[in-house]
Simulated scan of single mutants.
Amino acid sequence: MIAQHPAIRRYGTAAIAEVAREIARGGIVAVPTETVYGLAADATDAAAVARIYAAKGRPGFNPLIVHVPDLAAAERIAVFDAEARALAARWWPGPLTLVLPLRRDAGIAALVTAGLDTIALRVPAHRAMRALLEACGKPLAAPSANASNGISPTRAEHVAASLGERVPLIVDDGACAAGVESTIVMAGRILRPGPITAEQLGLPLAASEGKVSAPGQLATHYAPSKPLRLNAVSGAPGEWLIGFGAVVGDDTLSASGDPVEAAARLFDALHRADASDPAAIAVAPVPEAGIGAAINDRLRRAAHR
């Protein structure tokens, strides 16, 4: 049997029209956001949402983030208090996800929230996802466009390599700018660190409670197929070393030690390491401050086996 490959369309009016038609038919498509590529479907269509879970092999208890065009659309789906509205006004459009009480009349497929009475909402800034939201006129459920627990995709080719024929269409608009998933906030606490840092938000990181209350909280997540060793200052035999700053490796997150550059390159570097010949991966230490918290969160989950 000849392997089937997804169709990759360069971002533009024609590409957005084509993927919007696929969404309207109840299909799934991959589209870039400013964080990572998302696997999008109509969040009001239970069958379409089920196709996301099937394509990713995603556990049914792990909820999805819903993308909407603006705050007004978000308020039709969730109940906002003053704090949430202030965060939205400051950071939307952008890489911030708010977990809020779900309105009973929101019309969102129950599978999206995995049975929770809250919903994760984001207003994206990327031109491709915004264009698709406008073309569809529907809220879009869109987790990262990769097999569940795999490395998140920051390029169209990552999506194709991870999902193959399970996704029919991919919009290619180059590499994602942020390179790590959105910051998730619930009830004044950060559930998942991301591009918008704790310092910027002035909010604490939530302690792990051992239960899933929002997307991206599984202990094992973002993982390559090879063993991953953290805080390595040199590579051992049989390891592909991903450097940072003064630690020089086979690849580097940032030779200058810039954590923002490191975040944008993180998943790209993990994809290259996973495709390399060595049987294991090592990653240099990255400072925890600022966006380093998000980088280290993803690396710890990737190393949890």
Rank of each mutant, 00 (worst) to 15 (best):
D70W: 02
S225I: 11
A74Q: 10
I281R: 04
P69F: 03
G235L: 00
P95I: 05
L205N: 06
R21N: 01
A219Y: 11
W92V: 03
P101Q: 13
L205T: 03
I108G: 07
A232C: 14
P287Y: 10
N231W: 13
A89Y: 11
E83M: 09
S162V: 04
R265F: 12
S182N: 05
R192N: 13
D172C: 10
G249S: 05
E18F: 01
P101I: 04
R189G: 05
A131N: 00
E157G: 06
E209T: 15
S162E: 06
E75T: 11
H67W: 02
G27A: 07
P101V: 07
Q200K: 13
P285V: 06
W91R: 08
E22D: 12
P93L: 13
T33S: 14
A161P: 07
P287A: 07
I16Y: 06
A20N: 09
L169R: 00
A109S: 05
T44G: 14
V49R: 02
V66H: 07
A50E: 15
P168C: 02
A293D: 11
P95Y: 12
G216P: 00
M186K: 15
S208A: 15
R272C: 09
V79L: 10
I2L: 14
T97V: 01
L100M: 02
A223W: 03
T33Q: 01
P287V: 06
S182C: 09
A269Y: 00
R122Y: 00
P69M: 08
S256F: 13
Q200F: 08
D105L: 03
G150I: 01
D258Q: 14
A120N: 07
I77D: 05
T13C: 03
A145M: 08
G216F: 11
H221K: 01
D117G: 14
I16L: 15
V247G: 10
V112N: 00
V248N: 03
N231Q: 14
G245M: 08
K56I: 11
G38L: 06
V212W: 11
G26E: 04
I281V: 13
G94M: 04
S182Y: 07
S234D: 08
K138G: 02
I23V: 10
H304R: 13
I23Y: 03
A120C: 02
A15H: 03
V283E: 07
L140P: 00
D173V: 03
N296V: 07
A302K: 00
E288G: 05
R122Q: 09
F244N: 04
